[in-house]
Amino acid sequence: MESWMVSNLVVAVLLVGGAWIAVAVSRHDIWRAAVQQVWKRRPGAVLVVCVYVLLALLDSVAWRGNVDTGSDVVAQHEAVTLLERLFGDAQEKSYSAPLADIEFYDHSPLKHPGSHLFGTDILGGDVFLMTLKGARVALLIGGLTSLIAIPLALLFGIPAGYFGKRIDDVVFFIMSTLASIPTLLLLISITVALGRSTLVVCFALAVTSWVGFCRIARGETMKLREMDYVHAARLMGASETTIILRHILPNLMHLVVITFVLMFSGLVLSEAVLAWLGIGVNGSWGLMIAKAKDELSRDPAVWWNVGGAGVGLFGLLLAVNFLGDAVRDALDPRTRKES
């Protein structure tokens, strides 16, 4: 199966999953109230995040169509995403400034004068389109990493908290060992050792970020273990597995959501640093910024590449950071209001 088919499949799964979660949330008062509270407090941030998600989805649906080259109709070499189709052809020969009519260095006329909001890059690609496409990569990094890290954290954290003793000692030792290595270095080491690919970067990010959540899950499980209803379930003869799945895990879900949102911006920022070290993910904003270092030292400087990526990154992180506070306040009754 080709990668664009996988991508389409993932979109389908995400849409179905999203709908299922929406139904589940609307059935539970606590969750519905939390969603309403977040929406009431930070409507702007929610909207911005939704726009980014929409862009990412648009950029994930792709198919191979036919192109009309004028004289002939041929099949496209590569699958083209919905977002790119909406954008249409925007290819130039080389650099052009934002909304310019001519090329930046040799001043020859552009094919699509005045239509490049953020200009074009060295290969003539539209920077605005690339900025929009970065949303998909950023969300992919955050999502994929969380998908690895959170189950990992629960897998270690819950047994450690629930059973204690030996298991707890071992998990605690693993955590303190991992936490002793500075994040960035561990990240670099793993990516360098395993070779550079999206999956490896996400795996490395997951390895460096699961410890924090594992600690939280362990602590919370320790508290839940002593709750009356857990004792009651045990007296009624429920097995340990049942107790964990029915009584512990559901009560950790709010922490999962909080962690996911709070972790997200750190992951995207880390990827940007990795990108600059040459071990980033293709098409990410980090990579665009990293490439721009030389462009800025040209004369006159080409600034719109780093500008576009910077704005895309900044907008998403700002929204997510504000959202994070609101989500935490809505879901975690213990944290007091600390805007």
């Binding site: 940007a272 270092k293 992180l317």
Partner: peptide, 12 residues
């Protein structure tokens, strides 16, 4: 605001 900017952007 400050937290949302990548260190790369600060440096560059």
């Amino acid at each position: 605001l400050g937290m949302s900017v990548s260190i790369l952007i600060y440096i560059i």
